[in-house]
Amino acid sequence: MSARRAIYEALVEGRRLSELDAVELVDQHHDEVLREARAATKKPTLADHAAAADKLRKSPGRWRLVTTYKSTASARNVCRQVRTGELASYSPAGTFEAKFSPTGSGARMYVRFVGGAA
């Protein structure tokens, strides 16, 4: 049984988990806990804006999720760079529209192509 499942079952049954129980679960499921901890601390992958812009040019007017940022400030800044054409992949200015949607852990960035023929 996984550590996550054991915790879930304890909560469903209304049992409280003591610190000792939690330590025992970590000891029993060390590899799984370590794998999840490493996954949570991985550096985010960088968005391939050139590939995204190429796909968007092939479907004008359609909003697409391009990437997710860890903060709304980052998403807001990149959206501005897309709209103004500061990011070379999205030039010239006004060719693409961009918006972001806050999430619990950052923000998703959506872009659509609005200029000229593909």
Rank of each mutant, 00 (worst) to 15 (best):
A3E: 05
R4G: 00
A6C: 03
A6P: 11
I7Q: 00
I7K: 04
Y8G: 12
E9T: 03
E9C: 06
E9R: 03
E9P: 00
E9Q: 11
A10N: 03
A10M: 07
L11T: 15
V12S: 03
V12Y: 02
V12H: 01
G14S: 06
R15N: 08
R16M: 08
R16Y: 08
L17E: 09
L17D: 10
S18K: 09
S18F: 05
S18C: 14
E19F: 13
L20E: 15
L20H: 15
A22P: 02
A22I: 15
V23Y: 12
E24I: 03
E24T: 05
E24P: 06
E24D: 01
L25Q: 14
L25G: 01
L25M: 12
Q28A: 15
Q28I: 11
H29F: 15
H29L: 02
H30N: 11
V33M: 06
L34E: 14
L34R: 13
R35I: 10
A39M: 06
A39T: 10
T41V: 03
K43F: 02
K43C: 09
A47C: 08
D48W: 00
D48Y: 02
A50S: 12
A51N: 05
A51P: 12
A51D: 13
A51L: 01
A53K: 15
A53E: 03
D54W: 14
D54A: 15
L56R: 01
L56H: 09
R57Y: 10
K58L: 15
S59M: 14
S59C: 10
P60I: 01
G61T: 00
R62S: 06
W63G: 12
L65C: 02
V66C: 09
Y69T: 04
K70W: 03
K70D: 03
S71F: 12
T72H: 15
T72A: 13
A73Q: 10
S74R: 15
S74L: 14
A75P: 06
N77D: 07
N77A: 09
N77C: 02
V78Q: 13
V78C: 10
C79W: 05
Q81A: 09
Q81G: 07
V82W: 12
V82Q: 11
R83N: 07
T84K: 01
T84L: 00
G85A: 05
G85V: 02
E86A: 01
E86C: 00
E86P: 00
L87P: 03
S89V: 02
Y90P: 10
Y90F: 05
Y90M: 01
P92R: 03
A93D: 06
A93W: 07
G94N: 04
G94T: 07
T95A: 15
T95Q: 14
F96D: 13
F96Y: 15
F96A: 08
A98E: 06
K99C: 04
P102C: 01
P102K: 06
T103W: 12
T103C: 15
T103A: 07
G104C: 00
G104D: 10
G104A: 02
A107L: 11
R108I: 07
R108T: 08
M109H: 04
M109D: 04
Y110K: 11
Y110M: 13
V111S: 08
F113N: 12
F113K: 07
V114P: 11
V114R: 13
G115M: 08
G115N: 08
G116N: 11
G116H: 06
A117C: 01
A117G: 00
A118I: 10
